[in-house]
Design a protein around this nucleic acid. Structure first.
Lengths: 205, 205
DNA sequence: TCGCAAAAAATAACACCGTTGCGATACGCT
DNA sequence: AGCGTATCGCAACGGTGTTATTTTTTGCGA
């Protein structure tokens, strides 16, 4: 039997590229397969051959977003001081989000209605949080942080950065708010809250 | 000249009610004006007479959501202990969100693409956070919390609850995760991080 | 009471969307 | 070389939000 030619990799990249631009420019609502195909000089059917459907195309964007995000996280220099390192990772997280807010929306706030990441993509997403977990696990083992399940602390740290960034991106922060300074203070307060020496007994394990 | 009759309030409530049900059942994507009108036994144009557009209808849902949410927040009993009260408010926040996740999405995560709340709705939303600010302002004034701008602390507290709830609702938490317990621990750790007695000098004002 | 201006709502159209049959095409393998 | 199949353009289907037009309903002034 005959073998098909391989998928057109150049067209695939071009579509992903244009899709990213469309979303970055006018939000996820503005990503239409017809506009995308016209921009790329092809037809909507090509998208279905290359990706399967619109959600599958978004899944590819999601994956690429987490690849870049993971690289940024893994590349932040660490000092060994748990609190400082958590602040540093949190700052890298915000930098990533502000660099492409609409991509952040796809990755973290389900901003494209029909889309849910597939299993591979979710696995990749989980992988990017490994540096966070490593820091926390060691701080707990060293007795620097409270003796609670490291996942609990990790989720708490993820939540504060995600919450702050979400509020900032959706415009829910006060007008005269010094975001950068307050962001760092909130991260440091949150991380400090898990310190063992300062909270002996105040948080149940 | 002739005076117009007032808007049909019964139909207005019926449409809002059905819209809430549709969104609660199948998510914001499933809210279609045609389905909504058919359900209510009317036509799509009625929605335009009563609300103006689909985003305006969502704005009404948003407002109603914040009215209920604000009542829940204002109704939580407080003890006077800042940390405990912040945990209590945070728990009420989560309870509210879990009661109607899709409404929460409209209110806090812009889950309906074209929609942005109008000025009145945003003012009402800000109003619901007043109990939070009151607690923090007093704790700072009493020297219980660090001497940083109360808005900074308020945003941090809002961010942790919003972050945790968002992660839970989007299914980003680990499988075997005890949400309720960890949620409370994270809230308590975050609030404790702002205590003055335990963090003297570690956070810049 | 009645009529009339104006608001409300229905009908039907428009432009757009994601998706999918259907043909035509171009490519890899025998 | 030629067959078979994956790929892709065309056109259609059912759906969306919105709007122009027409009809109905309404409440006040005569």
């Amino acid at each position: 039997m005959a073998r098909p030619r391989t998928h057109d990799e150049a067209l695939r990249l071009k579509l992903l590229d244009r899709a990213g631009e469309l979303i970055a420019a006018d939000g996820p609502k503005a990503l239409s397969l017809r506009k995308l195909a016209a921009d790329a000089g092809t037809s909507t059917t090509a998208v279905y051959s290359l990706f399967g459907s619109k959600p599958d195309l978004v899944n590819a964007l999601y994956t690429e977003g987490f690849r870049r995000f993971g690289a940024r996280m893994a590349g932040t220099p660490l000092t060994g001081d748990a609190v400082e390192d958590l602040v540093a990772l949190g700052t890298a997280y915000r930098t990533s989000a502000l660099a492409d807010p609409n991509l952040y929306g796809i990755m973290f706030t389900r901003s494209v209605p029909g889309f849910e990441p597939n299993e591979d993509a979710e696995e990749l997403a989980r992988e990017t949080l490994k540096p966070l977990e490593r820091i926390i696990r060691r701080a707990v083992a060293d007795g620097v942080f409270l003796d609670v399940p490291p996942e609990t602390i990790a989720v708490g740290c993820w939540a504060i950065v995600h919450g702050l960034v979400s509020l900032e991106l959706t415009g829910n922060l006060p007008e005269e708010f010094d975001v950068t300074t307050s962001y760092e203070a909130a991260l440091r307060a949150n991380a400090s809250g898990w310190l063992r020496t300062q909270n002996s007994g105040s948080i149940p394990s």
